[in-house]
């Protein structure tokens, strides 16, 4: 340690103290409760999604629209896969805050860049089969009533807009991943 270069800086917050260990125990308990509540909410959302899919499938089976039934089931399964992937990707990097700061930053950037770059495979991808199956069922039903040409003209625009939106989401995530990789490359040249 050397003489502080700006004494006014080290004169600040001289009376600060660490949080008492007893209070820390309470905080750790509260943190565990927060995690348990979050896990419960995620579980409830997953179960709700499955129940909604089953309900919709049952309804369309009752009205005899089996193409929609199949599409809803595939969408529900895709939803479950996304829930599972979200849980896996949302979990933070292994907490080792005592590692040298630059190593910590590198691991964070690498992890986040990878998650963003691969969003097409773990977030968008599992929903695509359900989306395509649903669109095919909608086209099929419309074509039965009005013929394929009119069905494609009427239902094609919403389909194209959703596809464009999904491509946009993937592109934005890849752009953010590139930015993080640039930061990572800059870190690699520092030491």
């Amino acid at each position: 340690m050397t003489t502080p270069p700006l004494p006014q800086w080290t004169a600040l917050a001289r009376d600060a103290v660490f949080t008492d260990p007893t209070e820390m125990l309470l905080k750790a308990d509260r943190f565990d409760q927060t995690i348990r509540r979050r896990n419960w909410r995620e579980y409830a959302a997953g179960v709700s999604g499955v129940l909604l899919s089953i309900g919709m499938a049952a309804f369309f089976a009752w009205v005899g629209d089996y193409a929609i039934v199949g599409a809803v089931m595939v969408t529900g399964m895709g939803f479950l896969v996304v829930m599972h992937n979200l849980r896996r990707h949302a979990s933070p990097v292994e907490r080792l805050p005592e590692e040298p700061c630059i190593e910590h930053l590198r691991r964070q950037y690498r992890y986040q860049a990878e998650a963003l770059h691969s969003v097409a495979s773990w977030y968008i991808g599992p929903l695509v089969p359900g989306f395509l199956a649903m669109q095919a069922a909608i086209f099929w039903n419309a074509a039965q009533d009005r013929g394929w040409e009119e069905a494609l003209t009427d239902k094609g625009w919403p389909f194209a807009l959703i596809v464009a939106f999904l491509i946009g989401v993937i592109a934005l995530n890849r752009w953010a991943a590139r930015d993080l990789r640039r930061k990572l490359a800059a870190l690699e040249t520092l030491d």
Binding site: M1, P4, W9, P100, C101, I102, L105, K183, L190
Partner: peptide
């Protein structure tokens, strides 16, 4: 950015260059 911030704050605390390098992992 974080790396610059870490070096500056440690320097303001009066830490030596060797200690800052050890803490941050920078050369």
């Amino acid at each position: 950015p974080p790396v610059d911030m870490q070096v500056i704050v440690l320097w303001l605390e009066g830490e030596s260059a060797a200690d800052i390098a050890d803490i941050t992992g920078l050369s």
